Each structure stands twice: as structure tokens, then as C-alpha cells.
Simulated scan of single mutants.
Amino acid sequence: MTVFPIEKFKKLQTPFYYYDMDLLEKTLSLVNEESEKYDFNVHYAIKANANDRILEKIRQKGFGIDCVSGYEIKKALEIGFTPDGIVFAGVGKADWEIELGLKHDIACFNVESLPELEIINELAQNAGKKARVAFRINPNVNANTHHYITTGLDENKFGISMTDLEKVIDRMKELNHVEFEGMHFHIGSQITDLDNFKDLCLRINELQDWFISRHLFPRIINVGGGFGIDYEDPESHPVPDFSSYFKVFKDFLDLKSGQEVHFELGRSVVAQCGNLISRVLYVKEGVKTRFAIIDAGMTDLIRPALYQASHKVQNLTNPGGEKKKYDVVGPICESSDSFGKALDLPEMKRGDFVAIRSAGAYGEVMVSRYNLREEPKAYYSDTI
């Protein structure tokens, strides 16, 4: 259970991010313990949270890193992640980003289209190198999640479609500066039904047999990430069930001798350790609605406005107060600047501290300066 040191919070300017480093340590240790049972390889998806202290803790635990931009590659290298643990995905890799990966001999480029494959080959030839590539394949597996974060269907922009695979393979065999490493998948995010991952495994089994029949051996099977968390009750489920998650891939992937399984976990690793801390500015009685107006807004945590995402909101100052219904909203000049409507919360008053839970993923990393607001600072349970 995350402990919130309210007396120490009183000295700080809100809003700010507060990270439970003990919970992060527990989560990382469990990921390692469960993945090592099957010799699985885990890369942390840096897009979820690129806070330096978070990244350093993850690096110390021996994780690789999954990047989707050259800027993320730069950050990973600055923190000390080794190039042989860096994989690079992204549907629109710029030339300089590819060249950066080639310069540092990163582990793998996850290729998402035929034109990209050809450009990687050209740039590798110019650099006198051979690029290791995996094909990001769009397996048309429905992840049953929000349509903004579903990535594995035919109509999504990501990956190589099943119908284009033959053409891509034929072209690759003509290219001398790319080396086929394997297959890469990512069907979506915030997936809590493990049957979706079972379906992915079955599709992978079919595909790897198809590759082998064409004399290409996928040494690496990269299943991506997407494992979800409990946003509604983070106290009851502070750490996701990684045991069941990894066991699905152990049970349903038909691995061949010499193959490696790789994962790219982000949200499930860092989401629950992060909290956005805010203060109540005003309680406003509307015609039909009571508003709790807080000093954190969509500039500090955009997920509710962008994805209609739900985060648990807690009154830290008056946790045992009489429950009333509130629309919890921020100060930004947008109607979408809301953290929840008709929430049953202990009575709120000006100055109360509020925690918006499960904000460690896609929170601080997506902060903006809209309305010329200052970026929130970050504090940590072991140093505050």
C-alpha cells in the first residue's frame, strides 16, 4: 500500500508527481522472477515513463529498452542502457534516427513497412554496416481495448499486413545490408483479458511455420507488451499478475530450438508506482453538479481527456469524510479537462490534498505547457 506523507506534501508546490519507489522495486523484482522462469527477455517500453530515476532503477534490474524514437534511444544511452539491449520500433522512423541506431549497433530495428526496410538497407549500406531487423507484423488480433490504443488490427497504421508479407520477404532477399532476426508484434495496450495473448500466441505459431517454410528462421519472437493494470482499485492490485501473464506465453507459444522470446512492457511496470498529487482550489455548486476544482489539469495528466481513461481519485486530507458526489475538474480552459464525473468522494474543501492514482505510465512523460503552465516536478518516496 502506498503511503502518502501529507505533512511533507504541505511544503511542496502542487501539482507534482509522487513515485512509490518501494512499489517500483517490488514490481521490477517480480517481473524478473517470473520472466526468468522461462528465460524470457524483457525490454522496458520507455515511452511509458522516461523519468531519469525510474529509468536508472530499471537499468539496475537488467532490463533492455524498447524505443519508438531516436530521442528515446539517446535517453537510453545517456542513462547507461547498452545498445545490445535496445530495440527500435515506430511506424515513421526518420533517417537520422535510423542512422543513430546503426551508429550504436542496436540490437534490432522492428520494421513496419517495405519502404522502411529499403531505407534501412540503404542507410546501412552507406554506413558500411548490416542492420538486424525484425518484421512488425499486424496479426489482426483484436485486443478488445480502447480503439485509440488498439494496434494489431488490419485497419491500424502499425505493422506489416499479412497480405504484404510475401512481397516484403521477396524484397528482403534482394537486400544485402539487412539481416532477418525474427518477428515483432504489439496488439494494443491496457489488455486485461489474457485470452487475447493466447490468441496472439496461436497466430504467432502459424506465422513462424509460414516463415520457416520459406527458409527464414525467426530467431527472435518479440510479443510486444500491452499487459494492463487495475485502475479502479490500485490498492488491492498494486502489482499485476505477471505469473499468469508470462505463463500464457510459456503454455501456448510453440517455440523451436534456438528461439528467444522478447517482451516490451511499459504500463504494467511503472503505472501503479506513480501518483499525481494536487490540491483543491474551489468547490463550486453547479445547477445539477458539484465541482471539485483542483490545481492539476490535463496538461499534467492527459489520459482522461485523450482516452476517456479513468483514474481513481482519493481525498488524502479527509479520507473518512462523508461521501458526496463531485465532478473533479482541472483549471485548463477546455471542457475536456476532467478527471471524473459524479465521483463518490469524501467531502472536499479548499486546500485538501488529492491523489490521482495509477499515473506512473503516460503521465509525466505526456506533460504539456498548454496555457503556459509549468511542468510539474517529481518527488520520490525514498528522498522526500
Results as ranks from 00 to 15, higher is better:
residue 114 L to N: 05
residue 155 E to Y: 07
residue 234 P to H: 01
residue 213 S to F: 15
residue 265 L to H: 04
residue 273 C to A: 09
residue 334 E to L: 15
residue 112 E to S: 00
residue 38 Y to S: 10
residue 22 D to G: 10
residue 238 P to F: 00
residue 319 P to M: 03
residue 137 I to M: 07
residue 198 K to S: 08
residue 352 D to M: 05
residue 289 T to E: 13
residue 266 G to M: 02
residue 101 G to Y: 10
residue 146 H to L: 11
residue 161 S to E: 13
residue 43 H to Y: 14
residue 160 I to F: 05
residue 159 G to L: 08
residue 343 L to C: 05
residue 215 H to K: 15
residue 171 R to A: 01
residue 85 G to C: 08
residue 50 A to Y: 09
residue 162 M to H: 11
residue 338 S to V: 11
residue 306 L to W: 07
residue 90 G to P: 02
residue 122 E to H: 12
residue 71 Y to W: 14
residue 207 L to F: 13
residue 206 E to L: 15
residue 184 H to A: 09
residue 137 I to F: 07
residue 40 F to D: 12
residue 150 T to Y: 00
residue 102 L to E: 13
residue 233 D to S: 08
residue 75 K to C: 11
residue 287 V to G: 15
residue 55 L to I: 10
residue 311 H to W: 03
residue 155 E to H: 02
residue 294 I to P: 04
residue 48 A to R: 03
residue 208 Q to K: 15
residue 30 L to Q: 12
residue 318 N to H: 12
residue 171 R to M: 09
residue 34 E to M: 08
residue 333 C to D: 13
residue 139 P to R: 01
residue 122 E to I: 08
residue 320 G to F: 15
residue 113 S to T: 06
residue 180 F to K: 11
residue 86 I to T: 04
residue 199 D to P: 06
residue 216 L to G: 14
residue 369 R to C: 09
residue 287 V to H: 13
residue 188 G to C: 00
residue 301 L to V: 10
residue 38 Y to H: 04
residue 296 A to D: 08
residue 155 E to I: 06
residue 218 P to W: 01
residue 22 D to L: 11
residue 92 G to H: 15
residue 205 N to E: 10
residue 306 L to S: 06
residue 154 D to Q: 15
residue 239 V to N: 04
residue 9 F to E: 00
residue 102 L to G: 08
residue 221 I to R: 01
residue 11 K to E: 00
residue 368 S to F: 05
residue 282 Y to M: 13
residue 166 E to I: 14
residue 122 E to T: 11
residue 61 K to P: 13
residue 378 A to P: 03
residue 136 R to T: 04
residue 35 S to Y: 15
residue 108 C to G: 14
residue 376 P to A: 02
residue 138 N to Y: 03
residue 121 N to C: 00
residue 373 R to E: 11
residue 20 D to P: 05
residue 76 A to V: 07
residue 50 A to W: 10
residue 139 P to F: 00
residue 96 W to C: 15
residue 50 A to I: 14
residue 40 F to V: 06
residue 160 I to A: 10
residue 105 D to G: 06
residue 166 E to M: 14
residue 85 G to V: 07
residue 133 V to F: 11
residue 87 V to Q: 14
residue 360 G to R: 01
residue 280 V to C: 10
residue 129 K to S: 08
residue 12 L to P: 03
residue 37 K to M: 07
residue 357 R to N: 02
residue 244 S to R: 11
residue 3 V to C: 05
residue 286 G to W: 07
residue 289 T to R: 12
residue 175 L to C: 07
residue 167 K to L: 13
